[in-house]
Computed example of a mutant assay.
Amino acid sequence: MAGSSQKDRKKVGVFVQHECPLNLLPREIWSSIAVMVASNSIEDLFNMQATCKEFLGAASSDAVYKHATMSYKPLAHFLLHLDGPERRFLDRCVEVGNVDAILRHGFVEYLRFGRRDKGMELLARASTEGNVEAGYLCAMLLMFDHEDEEEVKRGVQMMEVIRISRKLESCSKFFRGVFNDAIVLLLEMFASE
Rank of each mutant, 00 (worst) to 15 (best):
K118Q: 12
I42P: 13
L24E: 11
M48P: 03
K66E: 03
H77T: 06
R163H: 05
A68R: 11
V152C: 12
L80G: 05
L56N: 15
E133T: 05
R87Q: 12
S71I: 04
M158F: 04
H77L: 01
V37F: 03
A76E: 02
P74M: 00
L90C: 08
S41L: 01
E133R: 02
A124L: 14
I164S: 15
Q49W: 10
L90E: 08
G3K: 08
D8T: 04
L82S: 03
R27A: 06
L82T: 13
Y65K: 10
C138Y: 08
K11D: 15
G84P: 02
L142Q: 14
G57A: 06
E54S: 10
A191P: 00
G177T: 07
C20N: 15
M70Y: 01
H146Y: 10
V108L: 10
L185T: 07
L111A: 02
A182Y: 08
K10H: 02
S71V: 08
R116H: 13
F179D: 15
R112W: 11
E129M: 06
L79E: 14
G97C: 08
M159E: 09
V64N: 07
E193D: 06
S165M: 05
R88K: 13
R166H: 11
L111W: 13
N23G: 13
R116M: 14
E169P: 00
C52R: 03
E121W: 02
K66P: 07
A34E: 05
M48I: 00
G119Q: 06
W30L: 12
F113G: 00
L103D: 04
R115H: 13
D83R: 12
E121Q: 11
L123W: 04
A2H: 05
Y110M: 03
A50W: 07
D83A: 05
E149W: 01
V96C: 05
N40H: 07
P85I: 00
K53V: 03
S32V: 02
C171E: 14
F46S: 08
E169C: 04
R166E: 13
R163Y: 01
V184Q: 05
D117P: 00
H146E: 14
E149T: 14
G106V: 04
E43T: 10
F46E: 09
G119Y: 06
A58P: 14
D145R: 10
H146W: 05
Y136F: 14
L103T: 07
D181N: 12
K173N: 15
V16A: 09
G135R: 00
M70S: 10
E86F: 08
F190P: 00
M140L: 15
H18F: 15
M120V: 07
